[in-house]
Amino acid sequence: MSQSNTNPESAMIQCVDVHKWYGQFHALRGVTLSVARGEVVVVMGPSGSGKSSFIRTINRLEEHQRGTIIVDGIELTHDVRNIERIRSEVGMVFQSFNLFPHLTVLENITLAPMRVRKMNRERAGKIARELLERVRIPEQADKYPGQLSGGQQQRVAIARALAMEPKVMLFDEPTSALDPEMIKEVLEVMVDLAKSGMTMICVTHEMNFARNVAHRVCFFDQGNIVEMGPPAKLFSTPEHERTQLFLSQILH
């Protein structure tokens, strides 16, 4: 069903027939998706369709019960070492930012490089300041998260994830808790990131972002991908009835 022309060898993320249950509830029903290096995939779909569940299985915030997930050649199993390796290769940005409120912005960003990558303080600090420059808030380094606007916090969260020099970035509705003017500043950072060649999976309903940046859009419904393709094609001539319904709701 994959419409991308990547061969599996070079795929950064490979999910084959992924199933997930919450107790009795079958939340993911055989998702198969392969994401190439440098590819930007946008995931859309109605609420409760399993978008979050899916991207959270990729870094094991949720466990999948069937199928295989391979990230950069490492398969996700119960082996804790594999999980930790994959987590340090995969950055994640949450809807609710989840910055550490007891640490300054700079400490938020340097924590993982220092503790997980064993980087020394000077180098981690230098990288953190460069990243803050990149997300356009270099002047906020010594503030606490509570002192920043939502848009600024989300950009710090992106910088925090990037500090681990991840090979993949996952975004779970990064702008849906933000006011319109803040959405723009966060999206700008995400566009920059996509242009720099980062492999990204973004759950978002920002049509412009999907149209201009995404290589592929996946449409989720009831725990599976029902339709997938380049944004131009999917948005103009959706084939599946569910996709048509959803797009008509979102565009009006």
Binding site: N59, L61, R87, F94, F97, L111, V116, M164
Partner: peptide, 27 residues
């Protein structure tokens, strides 16, 4: 402590001990 704090620590690859001592307990 909100669940998001645990998840953010996990997503960064912190070990269980680091998550407890650096993120959860201080707060």
């Amino acid at each position: 402590i909100p669940r998001g704090q645990f998840e953010a620590a996990d997503a960064l690859g912190l070990t269980a001990t680091q998550k407890m001592t650096l993120i959860v307990l201080p707060q």
